[in-house]
């Protein structure tokens, strides 16, 4: 049996990359004579989520709850996942390559003495089980032998497209309330800051997205970027460097571990175009890159580009837009 960890968003729906991972699990199942595809969810399973996972062909949804998983802890949650893995008799455990999914897979692998492959793109054989995964920040691929059981890995974000199954699964809920050893709770989250209000509109459905990366230079230097987004009625999307530095909230991140956008126009400013960022913006119809480096991958892959300092270019663009009488 193949078990996939499914993560949910603040509304309790499955995040897109988790549905991609379930889709990957189905491909694996098809190659392995139709072994069942199950999901594991830590926390609530809404009717919506249950229906969604059934449509993705999930046979059983293992729901994990209880004191042991009330607050997040890598070791605690991994111990709960191990309990489910054993109870369900699964030989494969996988998750989307989110920060949390990756962390949990590493914990489970370490605890079970198995290997862990991060950011898998595809598999080429079942026995031996060989996967191809991203290395060197996505600039190269590695073929890796995942021979131990359980086989533990994460699927790189947007490596496969999330697709519902031809035939729905039963989506039967199986409850688990595992006991977690105190030593696995030594490093648990003690507080989480309130998520910031989403002012940017829906990034994934926006027609225009203005992107901002390390080149912007600081949390207090976003005025020109915000002004352009306002003039174009667009949303703001940022690179991971920007969210890691706390310049902008995580929900604005575009890329493998953020949103996948498909606007008519994407304007990445000061974003180099690393493969993990590209994974989230490659379906934009037109890309107009603003970058001081004419050799940056984002520039060479763009439709249009302007070379230079974004803090000189953006004010000039904003002024020209106003001069032509737009966005009063």
């Amino acid at each position: 049996m193949i078990l996939t960890l499914v993560e949910t968003d603040l509304e309790g729906a499955a995040i897109e990359v988790s549905l991609e991972a379930v889709t990957f699990a189905r491909d694996l199942s098809a190659a392995g004579n139709g072994v069942p595809v199950d999901a594991v969810v830590i926390g609530d399973v809404s009717d919506h989520l249950r229906g969604e996972l059934a449509a993705y062909g999930v046979r059983k949804i293992h729901r994990v709850s209880g004191d042991g998983v009330a607050a997040y802890s890598g070791a605690g949650w991994a111990s709960a996942l191990q309990t489910v893995l054993k109870a369900a008799g699964s030989v494969v455990l996988m998750a989307a390559g989110t920060d949390r999914g990756t962390e949990l897979m590493a914990h489970v692998a370490a605890r079970s003495g198995a290997s862990m492959a991060a950011n898998v793109l595809s598999f080429s054989g079942l026995s031996p089980f060989v996967v191809t995964r991203q290395v060197v920040g996505g600039a190269a691929m590695e073929e890796m032998n995942l021979h131990q059981r359980p086989a533990v890995f994460t699927v790189a974000g947007h490596a496969v497209e999330a697709k519902p199954a031809d035939a729905s699964g039963a989506g039967e809920i199986v409850e688990h309330t595992p006991t977690v050893a105190p030593e696995d709770l030594r490093a648990a989250v003690v507080s989480t800051s309130q998520p910031e209000a989403d002012e940017s509109g829906d990034l994934t459905s926006a027609k225009v997205v203005v992107g901002a990366g390390r080149g912007v230079g600081g949390a207090d230097k976003f005025d020109d970027v915000v002004a352009l987004a306002d003039l174009l009625g667009g949303a703001i999307g940022v690179s991971r460097v920007v969210t890691s530095a706390g310049w902008r909230p995580h929900h604005e991140q575009v890329g493998q571990t953020g949103s996948r956008i498909s606007p008519d126009l994407y304007i990445p400013c000061g974003i180099s175009g690393a493969i993990q960022h590209w994974a989230g913006c490659s379906s934009a119809k037109t890309i107009l890159a603003i970058n001081s480096d004419a050799e940056a991958p984002m520039v060479t892959r763009a439709t249009y580009a302007v070379i230079g300092d974004l803090h000189e270019i953006l004010p000039a663009i904003n002024e020209e837009i106003r001069n032509r009488g737009y966005g009063a």
């Binding site: 590695e142 070379i307 230079g308």
Partner: peptide, 28 residues
């Protein structure tokens, strides 16, 4: 468990450079 590494095929560039610096604003 590494078997081998490979490189993805290069992507040809088809970019149109609109210009350098603020002077490109009008073309943008």
């Amino acid at each position: 468990g590494r078997v081998k590494m490979t490189l993805p095929p290069p992507t040809p560039s088809a970019v149109t450079i609109l210009g350098e610096g603020p002077a490109a604003a009008s073309a943008v």
